[in-house]
Design a protein around this nucleic acid. Structure first.
Length: 347
DNA sequence: GCTCCACCGGAACGCCGGGTCG
DNA sequence: CGACCCGGCGTTCCGGTGGAGC
């Protein structure tokens, strides 16, 4: 097998199970896709369209639908650019603009000493329509950039967030009122049947023939609670577990193990994103939960050689809370921290 | 070719207002 | 009310970078 080291007895193409994989045809999101397509239609004809605002719980196909639709758009339209930005990792004005230009310009056109204003100017000079997906837009620290992008007539924004309130909370009034005309599309959790059909699609593309049956997929779908991302992650874990155990298929008995394996994988991935100080904080909480803020800082201070200040720890804890690695309960003196479960719910 | 310096983004952090529990 | 905690905001510091001057 040339150029493909991913084949095994069970897994045929591991790429299908990666989070950013976009299927060739979307299932169960026809109504949402139609709404989105009609909002983007003027853009294709060179007119400004209305901004799109996609909301709904995680794992309901918001990102996938947006990427899918923009992919289709690029197939049909020559003079259009699309770009995906995840505001979770690119949360500053500079990084958002850089990411957008990154997909448009040749890389060397962006000099490292360019300021954010330079980048905005460069984007202003682009002479074809640009459709930008801004995923997890509520994570943006400098939301003023949204207004700057809105002001560019040839830039069309697709904003994605769990809830509308989260988006509107951080942005200034001018943009808030203008976003009232945005096309809103809300995504609901998938039903079990829909999840099974999504899993079937992935299995057909990513697994060897006949290694998993419908009843196993149903078991996985039921465990996923309407969340396609989780369902696919569990299927991936199940396939890898089956392979490592030298089985020739995915039996229902393996599903429970696959669920916890997928959770472990998520947690490990998140923990790897923490710096040393944040990791110490997590370990302190894990070893002595629930723990009061004062005690947490004392324990941290004893462990680390050059401790950060309390103010910085608060910033760290907020971040870890957003990852769902940490849960904070109560307020003021009643505050307690404990470890959380990254998984079904949002980060 | 080398050094110095101006400038950038981003992290750390001090300050402080506001909220809340005991 | 007092002690404690959170988080927004402005400032400072630092590493990276590349151009000016020698």
């Amino acid at each position: 097998m040339i150029g493909d080291g991913t084949r095994g007895a069970v897994v045929a193409d591991a790429r299908v199970f990666q989070e950013d994989w976009v299927p060739g045809d979307m299932h169960h999101r026809d109504a949402e896709l139609n709404l989105m397509a009609s909002a983007l239609k003027p853009v294709v004809e060179g007119d400004p369209g209305t901004e799109l605002l996609l909301t709904g719980p995680s794992g309901t196909g918001k990102t996938c639908s947006a990427k899918y639709l923009l992919g289709k758009l690029r197939e049909r339209v020559l003079d259009i650019e699309t770009q995906y930005v995840n505001c979770w990792s690119d949360y500053t004005r500079y990084r958002v603009l850089f990411r957008i230009l990154d997909g448009l310009d040749s890389a060397e056109a962006i000099r490292n000493r360019s300021s954010a204003s330079d980048l905005l100017e460069r984007l202003r000079e682009v002479d074809i329509p640009v459709v930008v997906i801004l995923d997890e837009v509520d994570q943006l620290a400098e939301s003023a950039v949204l207004y700057e992008l809105y002001e560019l007539p040839h830039v069309e924004m697709v904003l994605i967030s769990n809830g509308e309130a989260e988006v509107l909370a951080g942005i200034d009034d001018r943009l808030q009122s203008r976003l009232r005309t945005a096309t809103r599309v809300s995504f609901d959790r998938y039903g079990t049947d829909a999840l099974v059909s999504i899993l079937e699609q992935r299995a057909q593309k990513g697994l060897q023939p006949d290694v998993v049956g419908r009843s196993e997929l149903e078991a996985i779908a039921r465990a996923a609670d309407g969340n396609a991302r989780n369902a696919i992650a569990v299927l991936r874990s199940a396939a890898q577990l089956a392979e490592s155990r030298d089985l020739d298929g995915i039996a229902e008995a393996i599903v429970d193990d696959a669920v916890s394996d997928a959770q472990t994988r998520v947690r490990r991935t998140l923990l790897e994103k923490l710096n040393d100080h944040q990791r110490v904080l997590y370990d302190v909480i894990a070893s002595d939960e629930p723990i009061a803020p004062g005690d947490l800082y004392d324990a941290y201070e004893e462990t680390v050689e050059e401790p950060r200040t309390k103010r910085t720890l608060r910033t760290y804890l907020t971040k870890m809370e957003q990852y769902s690695l940490v849960v904070a309960e109560g307020s003021a003196q009643g505050r307690r921290y404990r470890t959380g479960d990254p998984g079904p719910d949002d980060r």
